[in-house]
Design a protein around this nucleic acid. Structure first.
Length: 390
DNA sequence: AGTCCACAGGAAGGGCAGGCGA
DNA sequence: TCGCCTGCCCTTCCTGTGGACT
């Protein structure tokens, strides 16, 4: 407690912090601003579709521009309402019903979390929207994950809204991490959603360094970071498609590790440790949030693979899983369902599962854990302690 | 060329919890 | 209280399939 922290203001490195400076995104800020500007004159801005990989500043730029838009509209008294929704937020906006219900709520209409027919929810949303003359700028972040889960019907409805509204206008801003996302949606939806498109290209290492340096200046005490730390963080993040969020996380965790080890400054070796720790935490967190059935499946996969020292197939996993269920008092699910759980674990990046054909010996998924031995052992301990005995 | 394995994965529908209006 | 609606998780049933083997 006596020691002075390396941090001056750690919040500046948190994911929620929206920085004043957005280096290397001036052009994007300008074009989005000019696209949304008509709202200030009471005209509907074109729908906008923004895409780019994670940590390329999409959400930060949009938030920044819309915040300015809000200020301006307050100044000159135009009715512009801005609603930001992250479609990945569990239990909030991850289904069509929840999304529209949440929108209606944000506009001041009360909607129960379940129980209404969907068209009723749409109606309430339209009512709320049309109750005043205004422009609504609706920002849907991570829109790809919602479309993947529930289909593109809600987008179709939202892009048609303006035909039904008498007084208000709705403008859509979609943000997607998935570059190929528009390929699979209804062409009519596609054309109206992407009246305008903007691609955020990844940062390169030197741009990342600028970004990181400006954050580091805000977050750390002077001289608390040794030379090379910022470079190292940005170089590591640049390897991973130029993800600024990753770079900032690395820096934050490095700082925390330095602090924990009673060091007065952050050194490059702290960055190495930070990299490991971040990977590990991510996996452990995801696994702990999985339902028990999924955990049992994962437990079976890890054990089978270890025993065999090779990849295993769906059928084998399922039979061990059934045993695991019996010993731990779980109701075993059918192979069909387990097959889906395996796909989910694969999508989460915890395991690797590839469909392979063995000719005469059938066609199945070949499965193995996709985490380092270190993380795998920790996973084993957690799962073993929590539920199962092997 | 045909067979056949061991599933993949789509479709349909059951059952549950939560909610509405009459 | 009843009939009906939703999302969600799951089962049942089914057709499709890549490629080693015959």
């Amino acid at each position: 407690m006596k020691k002075e922290s390396v941090f001056k203001d750690k919040d500046k490195l948190s994911t929620n912090y929206n920085p004043k400076n957005l280096p290397h995104r001036d052009e994007e800020i300008r074009s989005i601003a000019s696209l949304l500007a008509p709202a200030l004159k009471g005209n509907k801005p074109s729908n906008l579709f923004v895409y780019g990989k994670t940590g390329t500043g999409k959400s930060a730029v949009i938030k920044r521009v819309t915040e300015r838009l809000r200020q301006k509209s307050e100044e000159n008294g135009t009715e512009v309402k801005i609603v930001y929704l992250n479609c990945k937020l569990r239990k909030v906006a991850d289904t069509e019903y929840r999304l529209i219900a949440e929108l209606a709520r944000k506009l001041g209409k009360d909607v129960p979390s379940t129980g209404l027919p969907t068209d009723e929810v749409y109606e309430r949303f339209f009512d709320a929207l049309d109750s005043d003359k205004r422009i609504l700028v609706l920002i849907l972040d991570e829109i790809d994950s919602l479309v993947e889960k529930t289909g593109d019907e809600f987008l179709y409805n939202l892009t048609r809204v303006n035909e039904e509204l008498k007084r208000s206008k709705l403008s859509l801003v979609g943000i997607s991490n998935d570059l190929s996302f528009t390929r699979d949606i209804d062409p009519r939806v596609k054309s109206s959603l992407s009246e305008e498109e903007l691609l955020f290209s990844p940062y390169d290492a030197s741009q990342l360094k600028d970004i990181l340096q400006s954050r580091a200046d805000e977050a750390f005490h002077e001289g608390a970071i040794l030379q090379g730390v910022v470079q190292k963080c940005s170089a590591l993040a640049a390897q991973e498609h130029g993800d600024a969020r990753r770079a900032i996380d690395l820096l934050r965790v490095s700082g925390e590790l330095a602090e924990r080890s009673d060091s007065e400054e952050v050194r490059p070796e702290h960055v190495d440790k930070a990299e490991n720790e971040i990977d590990r935490n991510k996996v452990l967190e995801v696994v702990e949030s999985q339902p028990r059935q999924s955990q049992a499946v994962l437990w079976s996969i890890i054990n089978l693979c270890e025993e065999r020292d090779e990849m295993v197939q769906t059928g084998e996993v399922h039979s061990l899983y059934e045993q695991v269920c019996n010993t731990s008092g779980l109701d075993p699910l059918t192979q069909r369902r387990v097959s889906d759980l395996i796909s989910e674990l694969d999508m989460l990046g915890i395991i690797q599962a590839k469909v392979t054909s063995h000719g005469r010996y059938g066609r199945t998924r070949m499965i193995k854990p996709a985490v380092s031995t270190n993380v795998k052992n920790q996973l084993k301990n957690i799962l073993k302690e929590k539920y199962y005995f092997g």
